[in-house]
Each structure stands twice: as structure tokens, then as C-alpha cells.
Design a protein around this nucleic acid. Structure first.
Lengths: 339, 339
DNA sequence: AGAATAGTGTCTTTTAGACACTATCAA
DNA sequence: TTGATAGTGTCTAAAAGACACTATTCT
């Protein structure tokens, strides 16, 4: 439903329609502020990072929040607003933005989520290749790519995964998210998606090649405040975004959106390991990726040099033309605990 | 991001925070009307139906639209607004509503989607068991369950599936949706979901048992106007909802939400066939459903009578406690055309 | 009696995953 | 030279799907 449907009237001639619209007063209707917020994910040094901004104003002054802003009513679509805000916050130009995958995540409008007024935010999820350091552009006092592992997303675990699905079912998580079953997506509202309680540990410290590829270059020492909870309900939005990302790379080739135009299978595996938070079998992963039609296509070239500590030079690939992976790359570790 | 972050200020003491909020004027911010619209699906006589209301007022007077209405700013969550509107439109009480699955589908806010003013609608998707005839309650002049097959959802095909994903990629659909690969979900905005262009036809007229179970009881002769395009962008929202529904029953036990508390495997198969629009192998389906842990559990009882034209009495089951199906029931027919 | 139907058995193909192995390259 | 690494081969188990078959019930 859109707008009212109370006021009657009969006869649907164009003239009457035009007259009606001319006499229409939008202020007769309840209004809510509408914003977009972006969960922008990227890989830096083999670890998953999310773009956050430090709030310059109240409320939650000094706290970290998702980049975003008001939708320009009637002048842009929600998608356009999200792209615009992402560009403003990252300083990306149109060409770079083109390489970023952007999709709607869901809307959040609980009363009181913003203490000032009713605000509905339409959250977006972005997958970006490694981007230049965020300039605290726009109106944020600072912007930074923050390792997802450093966030406290509300369930008391560092890896940040179990969202309200898990909380809803009352299951207690004793393991990081690698053990979660694949959650098909859905809006943030209701749902039947699982959270799995899984007994078997999957050593998160040993997330193989992702970490291996990256020497101990501790970039931007992260502000203490990041460990504090995010502003508004942004912790939940980020958690939902991570859930979506983890599910999405199972069925789509979107993992390639985290990489450059050309990449090796090992780098691609690094994406999956970083997003899923668990190591994958190198040999099987390699064979599987090549067996999915349209996932990647060979460039014929090979990487400039071999593995970090030796080994043959890896072949280079670029993203294929598939929009869906078939067969899919299912997450391991969901045991049979999908109940 | 929520609300402004421009106005500076330092020091985050609680008193200052309170003072700030007291002095805050929400009218400083651009406002947009926010509504919820519900794509409510159910099965009637073995065919998938969607709940529509006839618009009593302008614009689109006399056209069919999704049920929905304004969100009561600050007084209810989006989920609550959707549940309220659904109850109002169907006349369901709380107990019945409890058996309806409701989840957020996505938000739609293109400029001009409502000719009167900027409106963002948060669409919801509902799966309901066969409900009493919709009373044109609330403010709609009429409400009716309309067979999805009778809708013209914009791509020139009766089955209503290919959405803007297909249009975006410029693929031309020559087949109904049975041939679509499984689309992982995503918001309505961007995406990489496929639309598959598939050569092999899957006779949509022969949707086996679903139709077979239902004798030729042509219910409510459908108004001519339904074949006209839906109001606003509701055709696209319905198409997105159908896509979501088709994907969702692959990985979740939500197909049971279309049935009563107790059901037979054959009835469950009818749900899949109606939603996917293609016949399934009875024997394999039966074995597969029973092999998925937590999908259904036996009640011990059997149906009152056997199949319509003979056969043994089917056993009765109820929904199990699984939130996800593992292994999933993947849609057939996606060929290898997932590219 | 005849026909349709619920449910099971069995076989083949595909896919997932474990493991072993070779060839290549960095240090 | 040593050791890590890219990539392949092979085997087993799980799952998908085709087909045949039995037993039960309606007309």
C-alpha cells in the first residue's frame, strides 16, 4: 500500500487524476526520516574489514557507526543514495565504485533506535576490493577500515557472527562462527533461519593462507573505542551483513568482488577463509572452483612470483560470467546440527 | 548513519546528552512517508495465491494493490506494522496470525513510485495456510486471494518470475520460471542473482498432483481488472516475493507454513510444485523429505482417506524442529544454464 | 475388477571430502 | 638443498535422480 486509500471518489479519467494530484498535500501524512547505512566489507592483509566512521555529533558522539546518511527525498532511489554515501565516505570515483558490489540488506525501524526521532534506515551491503585508506570525508570526523574480528557485535564473541537468530532460539554459542550452518537470507525482521549449536571446534587462529599471505603488518592501530559497542543498532546490522555475506559467497561468484581484476585461486580461497572464518582444503577448493562453469576463467598468465615461502607460480584468473554458482560452494562445518 | 552527525560538540556526559535530545527538533530533517506492504502467499485448491486489495482512492483507483499501510512513526516496529496490516486486511486473530510466517522482503523507494509524494515502502513476505476468504476490511474497498498465475507481473509471462535481474542482464526469457536457477536472496536493489536463459521447456500446464488434488472448483471468479498491471511498483514487489519464496523453501522448512498443523507428504509436495511451478518425482520427493533431519515428524496417524482416485491412506506428519534443511531440497530444472 | 496412488528398493551419476603425490619455486 | 607451495590423481561417502515394484484404497 502506498499513501492513503481512504479518500474515495469515482471515475478514473486522467483529468480527475491530475486534479487530485495537484490538490494533494503530502504533509497530511506521517513522516519518518529515512536514511541509508552501508556495511562495506573488504579484505585487508587477508582479514575481513568493515568501514566505520566516528561520530562527530550526538547522540553516540565519539562512537563508531556505519557510514550513511539521509535519502534525498524524491530525488534519488535508495540504491543511488547508498552508492552516493559510499562514494562520499570512501572518496571513490565512479570507476572504482563500479567495481564494488552493492545490494540492499534490509531495513531497520524499531522505535527508539534513534533517540531523537523515528528513523528508518535501509541498510546496504557492499563488497569491495582492497581500497585506499578511508578518508574521513563527508561529515564524519574519522573513517577507518576496522577488522571485523575486533568488533563486539553483541553476543560476546570476537568473530561476530551469531546474530539474533541465535539469540532468538536461545542457543549458546561456544564456538566461533565457522560452525554455523548456511543461513539462507531473509529480511532482518522475522525468520526461520538457523543458528546452529555445534560441538566441534574449528581452530580460528589457524585460518591458513589468508593469514599466511599477510605478514604481520599491523596497519592503523585501532582505536580503543572500536571495541565499544557500535552506535544505534549498527552492531546488529553489521552482524546481519556478515551473515548475508557468508551465505552469498556460497551461491554467487561475489567472492571475486573482494579481489582485483585478476587473481589466483589461492587468493580466492583466502576470501572464503576470511569471510567464513575457517580454513579450507586447498586441493579440493582448487578443483572445485575450476569445476563450476562460469565462476572463473583463465587469463593464460601466471603470477609474478610463487608462494610466500616458495612453490610454483600460480595461474591467474578473472571473474567468469556466471551469476550463480552451480554447484555451489557450501560452507563446511555445519555438521548435521542444522536443527 | 542515523540522523545528523554534522553538529559538533565535545564531551559526552549524560547530562549534556539529555540536554541535547531535549533541544532537538526533528523537523529539521527531511521526512519521507514510510509504509509497509505485504506479499501474502497461500495455497488454495493447489494453486499459489497472493492477497490483493482493490484501491478505493486515487491514484490507481480501482486497480489492485498489495495490502499495507503507514507505519505508525515511533510507536511500532516495522515487523509489528506488517503484522498489524496483515491482520487488519485478512481479519485474522492473534492465534491465526501466529501460524503465519512473516519476514521482511526488502524496501522500495524509487522517486516517483508514488505520484503524490516520496514514499519508501518496506515490503514483507508472508506464508499462510489456507485462510478464510479475505474480507475487504480496513480501508480497501475489496480484498481477494488472486491466483499468482493470473497476474501480469511485467515480463509478459503468466507464471510471474523473471524480475529485474533478468531485465538487467538483458536476457530474454522464453520460458516460464520453472527453468530458473536457484536465486540466493538479496535485497531488491542490486545484485548478481541470475536469471537463467534456458532452452528446455518445462510444461507448466502439467503441474501434477497440485492440480490433481484439486477438482475443477473455480472459486471466486476473478475480476477482469486483476489482469491489468498492479498499482505502483507492486508487480515488481510481488515478483521479488515469489523469487524469495521459491528460494526459501529450498533451504528452510517453510513450505509447511502453507499447510495445516498436520499434513501428508503428498500435500507437502503439492506446496513445492505450486511454488516452483513444476512437477516433482513423487517417490524421490517422499524419501528425501523423510531423510532430512528435523524437517517433518510423524504423528503416527494416517489420513482419513486415500488418494483422490484410490490408493493407500497417507501417513500424517507435522513440522519438525529444524530451522534449516540439510541437505536442502534443490529446485530441479536449473539445467546447467546457471550462467 | 480396474485404476490410481502411497511408499520402498535399487541402480547410476554427480558431488563432497580425505589423502597422497608431483612439480615448482623461494630462501 | 630444503621446505613450503600450486596443482592433480584417486578413492570413499553422500546425495540426486531414474526406474521398477508392492501394497492399499477408491470407484
Amino acid at each position: 500500500m502506498d499513501g492513503d486509500r481512504e479518500r474515495g471518489g469515482s471515475g478514473a479519467e486522467d483529468d480527475a487524476e491530475r486534479a487530485f494530484l495537484a490538490a494533494y498535500d503530502p504533509r497530511d501524512f506521517p513522516a519518518i526520516a529515512v536514511t541509508v547505512d552501508i556495511v562495506a566489507l573488504t579484505l585487508r592483509q587477508g582479514a575481513l574489514h568493515v568501514l566505520l566512521v566516528e561520530r562527530g555529533g550526538r547522540p553516540f558522539q565519539g562512537a563508531w557507526a556505519l557510514p550513511g546518511g539521509f535519502v534525498r527525498a524524491g530525488r534519488e532511489s535508495l540504491d543511488e543514495a547508498a552508492a552516493r554515501e559510499l562514494a562520499e565516505e570512501t572518496g571513490l570515483d565512479a570507476a572504482q565504485l563500479d567495481r564494488v558490489h552493492l545490494e540492499q540488506l534490509g531495513s531497520y525501524g524499531d522505535p527508539g533506535r534513534d533517540p531523537r526521532m523515528p528513523v528508518v534506515t535501509v541498510a546496504y551491503l557492499a563488497f569491495a576490493p582492497d581500497l585506499p585508506e578511508a578518508r574521513g570525508g563527508g561529515d564524519a570526523s574519522a573513517a577507518a577500515w576496522v577488522p571485523v574480528a575486533d568488533l563486539d557485535l553483541g553476543a560476546g564473541h570476537p568473530a561476530a557472527s551469531r546474530t539474533r537468530q541465535a539469540r532468538r532460539t536461545g542457543q549458546s554459542f561456544t564456538e566461533p562462527d565457522a560452525a554455523r550452518p548456511r543461513p539462507p537470507e531473509q529480511g532482518p525482521g522475522h525468520g526461520t533461519d538457523g543458528g546452529g549449536s555445534v560441538p566441534r571446534p574449528a581452530d580460528p587462529a589457524a585460518v591458513g593462507s589468508a593469514a599466511a599471505t599477510a605478514p604481520e603488518t599491523t596497519q592503523t592501530p585501532l582505536p580503543e573505542t572500536v571495541r565499544a559497542r557500535l552506535a544505534f543498532d549498527h552492531a546488529r546490522i553489521v552482524a546481519d551483513g556478515l551473515d548475508r555475506a557468508r551465505a552469498k559467497i556460497e551461491y554467487t561468484p561475489l567472492a571475486t568482488a573482494f579481489l582485483g581484476a585478476e587473481f589466483t585461486i589461492v587468493e580466492l580461497r583466502g576470501v572464503y577463509e576470511a569471510v567464513w572464518g575457517s580454513p579450507l582444503h586447498a586441493g579440493n577448493f582448487h578443483r572445485k572452483v575450476l569445476s563450476v562453469p562460469g565462476f572463473v576463467e583463465s587469463t593464460g598468465a601466471t603470477a609474478a612470483r610463487g608462494g610466500a615461502r616458495g612453490g610454483p607460480r600460480a595461474r591467474l584468473y578473472r571473474a567468469g560470467d556466471a551469476r550463480l554458482l552451480h554447484p555451489a560452494l557450501l560452507r563446511p562445518d555445519r555438521e548435521d546440527s542444522v536443527r
